[in-house]
Amino acid sequence: MALEAEVPRAAAAPGEAPVVARTSYFRLQVWATWFVLVSLLAWGCHGLRLDFGYVVQKLPFLLGLRLAPDGFIQGAVLTIFVTAVSMVCALLVAVITAAGRLSDNPVAFALATFYASLFRGTPLLVQVLIIYLALPQVGLVLGGLASGLIALSLNYGAYLAETIRSGMMAIPSGQQEAALALGLPRWLIIWKVTGPQALRLIIPPAGALFVSMLKDSSLVSILGLWELNFLAQSYARASFHYMEMLLAAALIYWALSIVFEIAQFRLERRFARGVAVAGRR
């Protein structure tokens, strides 16, 4: 925050909203309000006369601190695993698709638009079921985990591709021209000039997509994967502690989302180099 004092020309670039500096008093009020809201929520839960003993007993399983009977990871750890692997695959698929969308090659363009339209135009749940239940009918049998990973990767890859494309298109053509005029080859321009600038625009919506992916990973519970939502439901069903188990699962999802949001915020700040200097006053 040392930069706040030394910026002489504080005019925001055209088309960009000026970033309003938050005073420490403002931050204090934000934290206080959060504290009140969280307390109210906790008090409300307390009023439900929940069986906390049962929650404490099952928490290590929900969090995935113990392995499942078959020796595989379970609970929140499996949720994180599914999300992380799908995230990497989706990113890969999305970059290739975005390149196709930005390409002059008609076949690449058609492939990219066809894929994006197909996977954005059908429900994720239907995609999961087609891959897991319908493909075996034509001889392609995939396990629950593989099906879940493939469905999440392809579905989110399609959305992420559009995010990446719009980010790349938002970079003024003068940037590309200046780099070309210096004799830079195309791959280097993307790597050093347009890519990093586009990332600044891509990270916020991509972060939102990943948070949403974390939550949508609960859909793969129908494939018999012992992830967080699956465990919460089975324990609840067995002991009729629905409120306890589902609230606990919700809280764990929420906590994981907050970790994602913090990571996104950090990345955003990192890629705002140059722009943030002008914006922060």
Partner: peptide, 16 residues
């Protein structure tokens, strides 16, 4: 392009 420098009307510096 390596041997020809160019200066643009709108500067086109790399902002990042």
């Amino acid at each position: 392009r390596r041997e020809v420098g160019m200066v643009f009307q709108s500067f086109n510096l790399f902002p990042h």
